[in-house]
Design a protein around this nucleic acid. Structure first.
Length: 752
DNA sequence: GAGCACTGC
């Protein structure tokens, strides 16, 4: 938890410094204090309540204390959820200080890998994912008197699921075994409040003033509705940033860009204005005419992040060039100017091609307002937007599409079914924003394929109940359970852990160092035969864990991210604990293995990844067998890159869509291993899986055929769209190749 | 011959 601690400290030093100057009585000057009576009365009289207020209103720290003082904690804990772990920890720290008690006693927190609560805990801060886990174990949330969902406007996947479940609990009166009915408070910035209120039985809304300063918004008109090239906005951002630096009064600048490469390019350009210094190879302070330039993104080493929070020397201006991480996760103090690129990198799931695509898209108006707000935390500020008013009107949606409408829903559907919500279609389950039906159907199909739900009507299976206990993507869960049944989970646990954490391979910016790192990485592959990326991950895990020197030093010497390795070790421990509990159950499956030992790992992987089977097609390309028939390429980071022609059938962990459609982390398999599983990919009619849900059992054959045909047509359209996107990025040669492949595939299909 | 935002269990 070192890294979390660093971030927690960064936030803490700021707030505790403030607190030292003021007495605890200053809490009474918080904007929320005036609403204390009104809030307590509203909670007492209603099952649901919405509290809205900007940053600095004190709602997160004060409302739970008010409720506690008013006796709401007598019949159960007051649970407060946060979308992020650091937030849950820091807020709990702060409230325990305010209440003058030891953290973990009356006030505690729970996040993954760290439960800091006790029997005496009455106010519990936690991540929303943790509460969802608790709900799986205790459907009535009997430990709690009150649930507060904080930061609801962020619409995290878990918060959205909790919305529906808590509303259901109220509707179904599942709270009958309670002494006192459960109270639910939703805390949100001012977004769609009427809709939220309507959703929660027309509950009252209490508005609390914030404590922020005015931010002047300036449109620079450098980007219009027609500008979509990402190379464009980096230049424009740099231009505006330099303008701000030259012409504006003292005050630090926060620049919002889309990702690491754009940030590095922008920093390079900023430096070029003075002299050619490559900041990446030298961590000493550099300044461009009184400007310190600091990149900030998630995968950056923590020791470099520390400098972000330090104030600049007198007379020097600090400029932080950051990803969206600075919008919510990290607070940089002293910011007076924000430069907004207007774009964000977002992972979107497309059910029609079954691919996750990471794409650069315009932000929403509410996200732009959130970014601007970062300039008004300590004094009045200014926000420079590089895009025009027309871009704002035409290209930016009012609100971000919530995560539940953008991601694969397999895990969500499994969770709901395990909570006795068999009917997952919107006509039954209350989604605040309903995912498209085809998202739900695709999730049902995948769940069925992994044996998590039943063929008839999609009821959850025993295996599905085991699966929900493991915090892993469904395919990987299935593979791990297979391994456990065969008694070889030690082989798969480290692989599952390594696949759960961010990429462990360090890719240095310096070309020479990059070669050294690459050589080191290739050794890991060749040590275990050089033809299985999963085994390579297992190899790294084992070596790092058993390294005689400190594992941290070992990681540095081998160009491996130590931070990610530490997380992988924690994940492996947790998965191992969950698995051994499951194995103690009487009906946990036990199977015999009849193949050779060298096949064991791959055979287990097949049981979960047979939905990710591909077969070699023309040249170095592969064709997926999941029904989409997408053409994919092996990513150059794979040990099997440039060994394509030696391969026939393979399974892969993930797809990346960048300049081509790449598959990453893969291994060869034999057709016999998946032969019996493959029909499962096509045999099921997804509408049958959900027919009970939609109460359409009587629906006649014709209508179903029609629907199936529409789905097929859409899949075809989507393939064309995906290709069009690639054409833009590729050169003419590869475009014509792609087109040829596409036409060939189309012809082959029509023959069938 | 690539280059991947951010969370969470």
């Amino acid at each position: 938890l070192t890294d979390l601690a660093v971030k927690a400290m960064a936030g803490k030093s700021k707030s505790s410094g403030k607190r030292e100057q003021k007495e605890i009585s200053s809490l009474e000057h918080l904007p929320i204090h005036r609403h204390k009576k009104q809030l307590l009365q509203a909670v007492a009289e209603n099952p649901f309540l919405i509290v809205t207020g900007e940053t600095g209103s004190g709602k997160t720290t004060q409302l739970p204390q008010y409720l506690y003082q008013a006796g709401f904690g007598k019949h159960g804990m007051i649970g407060v959820t946060q979308p992020r772990r650091v937030a849950a920890i820091t807020v709990a720290q702060r409230v325990s200080e305010e209440m003058n008690c030891i953290l973990g006693k009356e006030v505690g927190y729970q996040v993954r890998f760290d439960d800091c609560t006790s029997k005496s805990t009455v106010i519990k801060y936690m991540t929303d994912g943790c509460l969802l886990r608790e709900l799986l174990a205790d459907h009535g949330l009997s430990q709690y008197s009150t649930i507060i969902l904080d930061e609801a406007h962020e619409r995290s996947l878990s918060t959205d699921v909790l919305f529906g479940l808590l509303k259901n609990m109220f509707k179904q009166k599942k709270t009958q075994d309670r002494k006192v009915p459960l109270k639910v408070v939703i805390m949100s910035a001012t977004l769609d409040l009427d809709k939220l209120s309507e959703f929660f039985e027309n509950c009252p809304i209490v508005s609390v003033a914030g404590r922020t300063y005015p931010v002047t918004e300036v449109h620079c008109d450098l980007i219009g509705p027609k500008d979509t090239e990402s190379s464009l906005f980096v230049k424009e951002v740099v231009k505006v940033t330099l303008d701000v630096h030259m012409n504006e009064e003292a005050g630090d600048i926060l620049v919002f860009l889309t990702g690491q490469s754009e940030i590095e390019r922008a920093c390079d350009l900023l430096f070029q204005k003075a002299e050619a210094i490559d900041y990446r190879y030298d961590v000493q302070d550099h300044s461009v005419e009184g400007l310190i330039i600091l990149p900030l993104y998630g995968s950056m080493p923590t020791d470099q992040q520390r400098r972000i929070f330090q104030p600049p020397p007198p007379g020097i201006r600090k400029c932080v060039v950051a990803t969206n991480i600075a919008a919510t996760s990290l607070t940089v103090s002293g910011i007076r100017y924000v430069v907004d690129s207007g774009f964000v990198k977002q992972l979107n799931h497309n059910p029609r091609v079954g691919l996750d695509i990471l794409e650069v898209v315009p932000i929403s108006k509410s996200e732009a307002m959130q970014r601007a707000g970062r300039a008004g935390r300590t004094s009045a500020g200014k926000c420079y937007r590089i895009y025009s008013k027309e871009f704002w009107r035409k290209c930016m949606p009012d609100h971000m599409v919530p995560e539940i409408q953008r991601t694969s829903l397999t895990t969500v559907i499994l969770t709901l079914k395990c909570l006795a919500v068999h009917n997952v279609i919107s006509t039954n389950f209350p989604y605040l924003d309903c995912p498209e039906e085809r998202h739900i159907l695709e999730a049902l199909k995948q769940l069925y394929q992994l044996c998590g739900c039943d063929h008839r009507w999609g009821y959850v299976t025993r295996l599905g109940q085991f699966m929900v206990e493991l915090p892993l993507p469904p395919g990987l869960t299935r593979a791990l359970l297979k391994a456990a049944a065969l008694g070889c989970e030690d082989l798969l646990l480290p692989v599952a852990a390594m696949l759960s954490v961010e990429n462990v391979f360090i890719r240095p910016g310096h070309p020479e160092k990059q070669k050294v790192a690459e050589r080191r990485h290739r050794e890991f592959a060749s040590q275990t035969g050089g033809c299985n990326d999963f085994t390579t991950l297992l190899n790294i895990f084992k070596q790092c864990k058993s390294s005689s020197a400190s594992p941290a030093n070992w990681s540095r010497d081998h160009w491996i991210h130590w931070r990610a390795m530490k997380t992988a070790f924690s994940v492996e421990t947790q998965l191992s604990e969950v698995l051994s509990k499951l194995k103690q159950l009487k009906d946990f499956p036990v199977e015999e293995f009849d193949g050779s030992k060298s096949e064991l790992l791959r055979r287990c992987l097949c049981s979960g990844y047979f939905t990710n089977v591909a077969r070699r097609s023309v040249g170095k390309t592969f064709c997926t067998m999941d029904g989409h028939g997408s053409v994919v390429h092996i990513h150059p980071s794979s040990a099997l890159y440039e060994k394509e022609t030696q391969l026939d059938w393979i399974i892969f962990h993930e797809v990346l869509v960048t300049s081509k459609v790449y598959i990453r982390t893969l291994c060869p398999i034999k057709y016999e291993w998946v032969k019996d599983l493959l029909p499962k990919l096509h045999e099921i009619d997804v509408h049958e899986l959900s027919s009970v849900a939609r109460e359409e059992q009587t629906e006649d054959e014709m209508a179903r055929w029609e629907k199936r045909e529409i789905v097929k047509q859409e899949a075809g359209k989507m393939a064309e769209e995906a290709l069009k996107k690639l054409e833009k990025r590729n050169d003419e040669k590869s475009v014509s190749d792609a087109r040829a492949r596409y036409l060939q595939r189309k012809q082959e299909r029509s023959k069938d």
